[in-house]
Design a protein around this nucleic acid. Structure first.
Ligand SMILES: Nc1ncnc2c1ncn2[C@@H]1O[C@H](COP(=O)(O)OP(=O)(O)OP(=O)(O)O)[C@@H](O)[C@H]1O
Length: 778
DNA sequence: ATTACTTCACTTTTT
DNA sequence: GTGAAGTAAT
C-alpha cells in the first residue's frame, strides 16, 4: 500500500486508524505535514471517507496551497476535502449558513480598512493627540484573539478610553455590515454556540478534522476546534481528529498563539493518542545540529533530541559583508552558481522583515536573475486596486461606510472633508440606512447642491445601475472604471511611470476578475469573498529558468523546505528585532524563528550579516546578531567577506559549492564588471556613491535604479537668476497679505531662484515664498 | 476643494 | 526611503 510507504512507526500510528484523536508533537522536518496529507489520502482510499467529510486547517495560504497540491497528488478524487486556513474555512461556513447569522450579508474588512475606521473613530472622539490608533488596533486585536466564547470580551482591554473606542468600533463595524479577520473566527464560534441543531447536523456531515502547525493556534482557534469536533455536551463526536505541531516552532505569540494549546491538548481531548517523532528527514546532519544548538539556548523548553540519517559535510557558511548591497550581491552570485551547479533545486532567501527584500531585489535585477517575492505589499493591497474593490464592495453592501469613505472622492469629484463630515453626521442620525438613502436625503433637503450635488448624483447612479442590472463581476468592474473615468484620473493625478504601473494593475485586476468568473465565481459577492483572504495574486510574470528562487520572511517560510537557504541580515536590532531585546519571552521567540529558518534547509545554509545598512534612508552601522555567538564555530565557520571584490565572492562561493579551489572559472551568466577594481569601488550602503561609469554600466544591463536616475539628472550648473537673495536679510521687517507684519528669521534659496523666508509673525512662525511678502514701510 | 510641498514617525512578523 | 499629516497657495 503506497500510502503507508515511507512512514515510520509513529507516523503510521497517526495515519492508519480511521477513528481516534491523535496529537503528533515532533521537531522540524520530522514528517508532520506528511502525516496530515497521507492521513487524508488514506481516509479516502482505505476508509472510504467522503472527501467532503474531511476538513484540514493550516495557518497560511501558502501552506494551504502546498497541502492541496500534495493531497491532490496522493488522492485522485473528483471532490476535494476542505483544505484551507482557519479564516478561509470560517468564511465558508458563515456564508453557507448565512440564514443563521445576525448579519447575513456581511463583507470583509481587511486590516487596512479596519485601521482606517479606528483612526476615524479616534479622531472623531477627539483623542487624536493622546491615543494612537495603533494602540487601539492592537488592544482590539488582542482582545478578539482571546475571546473564545463567540463574542468579544471588552473587559480584556484595561485602558477605559481604549475600551470605549473599541466598543464604538464594534458598533460602527456592525452598522457597516462588516466583519474583520478576527471576527470570522468569533462569529463562527457564535454560529456553533447559538445553533445547537446546526452543530449536530454539521457533525453528521464533517467526520474528520486535521490541523497543521497547532503550536500557533490561539485560544479562539482552539475553542473553535472544540465546537467543531465536540457535541453540545462537550463530548468528542467525530470519527477522527489529528493535530500536529512543534512547540519549538511557535512564532505567532504576537497574535495570541499559545503553546498551551498543544501542550495541554489531551486535557481537552482525553482520548488523545500522543505521538512523538525525533527523526528528521529533511536536513543533512550538520544543519540539524546547528538548529539543535540554537534552540537549546532557550530556557523555557522541553528537551528534545532531533537526529538525521542524512550525512553531509561542509554545508554551512556564515559571512560578514560590507553592506546590504554587498550582501545582496553575494546572494545574487550564489544564485548564479546554484543555477549552474544545482539546476532544478530550490532556494530561498529568508529575512526578518519585508523591507530587507529591497536591496536583494535590486541585486537580483542587476544580475538578470528571476525570483519571486512572497508576501510584502501585495497586489490586492495596492491603492488603485483597493479603490476599485471598494466600489465593488459598496455595490454589494451599501452599508459599508469604510468603503464609502474610501471612494466618495476617488477619483476626485469635488467632495472633500466638509462633505464627509456632513454626510456622516446625517448617517449617524439614521444609522440603519444605506449610503444612497443618505445621499438622497442630503439632496432632497438641499444641503448638497450645485456641482457637489451633480457629483453625488452621478456617483449614486452608478450604484443603482449596478443594483438594477446585476451585471457580471467583469461587467461591473468595467462599468465602474468607465463611468468614473478612473484611468484618466490615474494618468492625470500621477507621474507617467507611476500612472502606467497603476493602469497596468487595474488591467490585472480586470483579468483576475475574468479568471475568477471563468472558475465559476459569477457573483460579485463570491469574487469579493475569494479575494478578501488571499492578498497573493498569481502573477503571470513568474518565469521559470531552472532554479526557483523565493524571497520571504521567516514567518512565511514556516512549514516549507528548500535545498539551499540563505538567512540574510543577521544583525542585532534587525534579527533579533530591537523590540525583543529586553523581553525574554519575545527574545526566545526570535530564537525559535531562527530555528525555523535553519531547519528549512535540506542541503545548504548560508547566513550573512552586513556591517552597514540603509535604515530609514540613512546608513547605519550594524552589529552582528547576538545569535551568531550561539553558533558553534566548528559547525559554522565565520568568514570576513567585507573586503571582497566580486572576484573574491565568486571564488568563495564556487569553492563552497564544488569543494574545488583550483579550477576557478567564471560562469558566463555572471555580469562582469571590469571597472570594479578594488581601488575605485566600494560597497558602501550609500547608493548615491555610484560613479558615473558605474551607472552607465547598469544602464547597459537594462536596469537603472530609480533613485540613482534622479541624482544624475540634476543639472550641474543650475541657472541662477539675478542674485535676488541680496534684497532680503535676517531681522528685516516685512509685510504679508494675510499674516500682517513680521520679522525674517531665516532665508533659504531654492533651485530656480525661488526664495523661502521663515518669518516670525504675531500669529506664529511661517515659511513663506518671498514673492508674497514685501519690505515693510513705516 | 485641490495642489504642491514640507515634516515626521515609522518597520517586526499574517489572516 | 515612504506614506501620512499638516500647511501655504491657487
Ligand atoms: N518517513 C519518512 N521517510 C522519508 N522521508 C520523509 C518521511 N516523512 C517525511 N519525510 C520527508 O521529510 C521532509 C519533511 O517533512 P514534513 O514537511 O512533513 O515535516 P514537518 O514535520 O511538517 O516539518 P516542519 O515542522 O518544518 O513543518 C519532507 O521532504 C518529507 O517528504
Amino acid at each position: 500500500m503506497s500510502l503507508l510507504a515511507h512512514l515510520n512507526e509513529q507516523q503510521r500510528a497517526a495515519v492508519e486508524p480511521g477513528r481516534g484523536v491523535f496529537l503528533v508533537r515532533a521537531g522540524a522536518g520530522s514528517g508532520k505535514t506528511r502525516v496530515i496529507t497521507r492521513r487524508i489520502a488514506h481516509l479516502i482510499a482505505h476508509h472510504k471517507a467522503e472527501p467532503s467529510s474531511i476538513v484540514a486547517l493550516t495557518f497560511t495560504n501558502k501552506a494551504a496551497n502546498e497541502m492541496k497540491e500534495r493531497v491532490a497528488q496522493l488522492a485522485q478524487t473528483t471532490t476535494t476535502p476542505a483544505i484551507g486556513t482557519f479564516h478561509a474555512y470560517c468564511l465558508r461556513l458563515l456564508k453557507t449558513n448565512r440564514h443563521l447569522l445576525a448579519l447575513p450579508d456581511f463583507t470583509i474588512m481587511d486590516e487596512d480598512d479596519r485601521d482606517k475606521l479606528i483612526q476615524k473613530i479616534v479622531s472623531a472622539a477627539g483623542f487624536n493627540k493622546q491615543i494612537s490608533s495603533n494602540a487601539v488596533s492592537h488592544a482590539l486585536s488582542n482582545a478578539k484573539n482571546q475571546s473564545a466564547t463567540g463574542s468579544i470580551n471588552f473587559s480584556l482591554i484595561d485602558h477605559p478610553v481604549i475600551q470605549d473606542l473599541c466598543m464604538t468600533y464594534e458598533k460602527e463595524r456592525k452598522l457597516a455590515h462588516c466583519l474583520d479577520f478576527d471576527d470570522l473566527l468569533i462569529e463562527t464560534i457564535a454560529l456553533f454556540k447559538n445553533n445547537p441543531s446546526f452543530r449536530t447536523s454539521y457533525q453528521s456531515f464533517v467526520r474528520h478534522v486535521l490541523v497543521d502547525e497547532y503550536q500557533d493556534t490561539n485560544l479562539v482557534q482552539h475553542a473553535l476546534l472544540r465546537f467543531m469536533t465536540c457535541d453540545n455536551q462537550g463530548i468528542f463526536a467525530l470519527d477522527s481528529l489529528c493535530v500536529v505541531g512543534d512547540e519549538d516552532q511557535s512564532i505567532y505569540s504576537w497574535r495570541g498563539a499559545t503553546v498551551h494549546n498543544i501542550l495541554e491538548f489531551s486535557k481537552d481531548f482525553p482520548q488523545t493518542v500522543s505521538l512523538v517523532i525525533e527523526q528528521n528527514y529533511r536536513s543533512v546532519q550538520p544543519i540539524l545540529s546547528l538548529a539543535n544548538e540554537v534552540i537549546n539556548n532557550n530556557a523555557s523548553r522541553l528537551p528534545k533530541n532531533l537526529w538525521s540519517e542524512r550525512k553531509g559535510k561542509d554545508r554551512i557558511r556564515l559571512v560578514k559583508m560590507a553592506s546590504d548591497r554587498h550582501e545582496a550581491d553575494l546572494v545574487a552570485r550564489l544564485t548564479s552558481f546554484l543555477k549552474k551547479f544545482h539546476p532544478g533545486e530550490s532556494c530561498a532567501v529568508l529575512y526578518r522583515s519585508h523591507h530587507q527584500s529591497r536591496s536583494l531585489e535590486e541585486a537580483l535585477l542587476r544580475h538578470s536573475l528571476s525570483y519571486k517575492i512572497i508576501g510584502g505589499i501585495q497586489f490586492y493591497e495596492r491603492q488603485e486596486v483597493k479603490d476599485l474593490l471598494a466600489y465593488l464592495r459598496l455595490a454589494v453592501n451599501p452599508y459599508d461606510r469604510v468603503s464609502f469613505s474610501r471612494i466618495y472622492n476617488a477619483p476626485t469629484r469635488g467632495l472633500g472633508a466638509k462633505f464627509e463630515e456632513l454626510f456622516f453626521e446625517v448617517w449617524s442620525q439614521e444609522p440603519l440606512l444605506p449610503f444612497n438613502a443618505i445621499a438622497q436625503k442630503l439632496i432632497d433637503s438641499g444641503a448638497i447642491a450645485g456641482a457637489k450635488k451633480n457629483s453625488l448624483v452621478a456617483f449614486c447612479e452608478l450604484f443603482s445601475f449596478i443594483a438594477k442590472n446585476n451585471p457580471t463581476p467583469t461587467a461591473a468592474l468595467e462599468l465602474i472604471v468607465q463611468k468614473t473615468e478612473y484611468l484618466s484620473y490615474l494618468s492625470n493625478a500621477f507621474d507617467k511611470s507611476i500612472a502606467l504601473e497603476k493602469i497596468e494593475n487595474v488591467r490585472e485586476l480586470a483579468s483576475a476578475v475574468q479568471a475568477a468568473e471563468d472558475r465559476g465565481c459569477t457573483s460579485l459577492e463570491a469574487f469579493l469573498n475569494e479575494v478578501a483572504l488571499v492578498q497573493d495574486h498569481a502573477s503571470k510574470a513568474d518565469r521559470d529558468d531552472g532554479l526557483q528562487l523565493q524571497l520571504m520572511t521567516y514567518h512565511a517560510a514556516k512549514g516549507l523546505e528548500f535545498d539551499t537557504v540563505v538567512l540574510a541580515g543577521l544583525e542585532d536590532g534587525l534579527f533579533p528585532t530591537a523590540r525583543s531585546l529586553d523581553i525574554p519571552a519575545s527574545f526566545e521567540e526570535e530564537r525559535r524563528l531562527l530555528y525555523v529558518g535553519i531547519t528549512r534547509a535540506r542541503e545548504r545554509l548560508l547566513m550573512t550579516h552586513a556591517q552597514q545598512r540603509y535604515v530609514f534612508g540613512r546608513v547605519t552601522q550594524q552589529i552582528a546578531s547576538r545569535f551568531i555567538e550561539e553558533l558553534p564555530k566548528a559547525l559554522a565557520p565565520h568568514e570576513d567577506g567585507s573586503q571582497w571584490a566580486p572576484f573574491n565572492t565568486d571564488r568563495f562561493l564556487e569553492t563552497w559549492l564544488t569543494g574545488n579551489t583550483s579550477s576557478f572559472s567564471n560562469p558566463s551568466s555572471l555580469p562582469q564588471a571590469p571597472k570594479f577594481t578594488r581601488s575605485s569601488f566600494t560597497w558602501d550602503a550609500e547608493p548615491f556613491k555610484l560613479s558615473k561609469e558605474r551607472k552607465e554600466n547598469l544602464d547597459h544591463q537594462g536596469y537603472t535604479p530609480s533613485r540613482a536616475t534622479s541624482t544624475f539628472t540634476t543639472p550641474p550648473n543650475t541657472p541662477l537668476g539675478p542674485k535676488a537673495s541680496s534684497s532680503w536679510r535676517p531681522f528685516q521687517t516685512v509685510q504679508h497679505k494675510s499674516f500682517g507684519v513680521g520679522v525674517i528669521k531665516e532665508i533659504e534659496e531654492k533651485s530656480g531662484g525661488v526664495i523661502n523666508l521663515t518669518i516670525h509673525f504675531s500669529c506664529g512662525i511661517k515659511k513663506i515664498n518671498a514673492s508674497f511678502v514685501s519690505p515693510h514701510q513705516k
